[in-house]
Design a protein around this nucleic acid. Structure first.
Lengths: 234, 234
DNA sequence: ACCTGAACACCGTTCAAGT
DNA sequence: ACCTGAACACCGTTCAAGT
């Protein structure tokens, strides 16, 4: 909890008084901060720039929402609620679980700047919680609960997170020296067939690959939950 | 390529001349930078602090190795070579592929500060390239090559990356408000069985979960590579 | 209660200048 | 060729002070 910020108090906004810029709401600050991030990226969210956008001083931000971390959490919470809106389609639980995971991936990419902001402060769990709850309900419907449900969901969500790490990279702002194509082009021919090294140089189709990978994980997880004694993979 | 740094030139070090701190090698700078990162974390790597450690001015660093990004790349390359040392065990290709992926996970955690440094500048591919090459050779031995090999390896490595995102988090420096246990404790009882919500509150056993997840992915990948026409999961 | 101004302790980077 | 000193343009955060 923030210490002495107005955000923590629950008193009514009160009628506009005598201040020069009276009536600045914490929600307005979050609005402006979110707009700033979506338009110019996570690194553009500085207290000074945000204050300038709002026509106030940086100290005003601190008084209303606390420090930068508090502000970022407020942004994430806002976006998290929006991303939770999802009309679930799919006949069986497997389809619905894959649909949820795919939605996490797609919506994270659509709001890439917010996603990387959440990642920077380690608040991805906050961002994804509503959808994790939906997924837990579907796992329950598939007969997976307790620790099995936790392991299944974590495996699925970490897989999505890994795909996001790659999917969020902008080829433009990555140093050419560390781009995969350049690195794999230097692999000698006697180590691997050219067919493989050239394929490694071109990026994978992430949505397609995610789909097949998710299905492999989900199938395995549900299989293990229904036959707890079975040895993994024969 | 860096523009005018000494690192780019290949001339001999030359005999110690008249300078007050003559003979500072780029490799010494990388040594000191690596030590700084491993001891105090990625965010401790500032040009000023590194210069102070070396007893020189910040500008000297720029002259020798270029800017901060160049320096970071040099650090990653150094560590990458060290992590590539791996005695491969395992009878069949599947075991060896899983062993390589597990090694990537473990060594990344062992050098967590360097890992997060690489992640910050998007140079994880540089960090993992040597081990990816080893994995590509094993996939080849398992009959997987070309685009199938690329998709298989990317899926495996992204899965590991996702586990790393979670595994690298320090519970201590994450805001208590966004910790999973606190978030799941607030889920109402009618939405999910208590058995599940309480399980969600405790962290998963990442190494064990990674192992089972990797095996599911690898089995699926090799299965698909040997029966290209087969429908996924019946 | 709400907001400002000034300051502190940092950053990365550049550039002219020294030897 | 190698290194310094000073400066520029930034950061997050705090604190006394104003109305």
């Amino acid at each position: 909890m923030a210490t002495t910020t107005r955000a923590a108090s629950t008193t009514a906004p009160a009628a506009t008084g005598t201040g020069r810029r009276a009536g600045l709401e914490p929600s307005e600050i979050v609005d402006a901060a979110l707009a700033l991030v979506e338009e110019h990226g996570a690194e553009a969210l500085t207290m000074r720039r945000l204050a300038a956008d709002l026509g106030v001083t940086t100290t005003t931000i601190y008084w209303h929402v606390g420090n930068r971390d508090d502000l970022v959490l407020a942004i994430i919470e806002r976006v998290s609620e929006q991303q939770a809106q999802l009309e679930l389609s799919g006949d069986d639980p497997v389809e619905r679980i894959v649909a949820i995971a795919t939605h996490v991936f797609r919506s994270a990419l659509e709001r890439r700047h917010v996603t990387s902001l959440a990642h920077q402060v380690g608040a991805t769990s906050l961002l994804e919680l509503p959808l994790e709850r939906t997924m837990a309900v579907e796992l329950d419907a598939a007969g997976v609960r307790g620790e099995s449900a936790r392991d299944a969901m974590r495996a699925i969500m970490m897989c999505v997170a890994g795909f996001l790490v790659v999917g969020m990279r902008r080829p433009t702002d990555i140093d050419p020296r560390v781009r995969s194509d350049a690195l794999w082009a230097a692999v000698p021919e006697d180590e691997l067939p050219a067919e493989t090294t050239t394929a490694m140089g071109v990026p994978a189709d992430l949505p397609v690959l995610l789909d097949t990978t998710l299905r492999a994980i989900v199938a395995d997880v549900i299989d293990r939950a229904s036959n707890p004694t079975k040895e993994p993979h024969g």
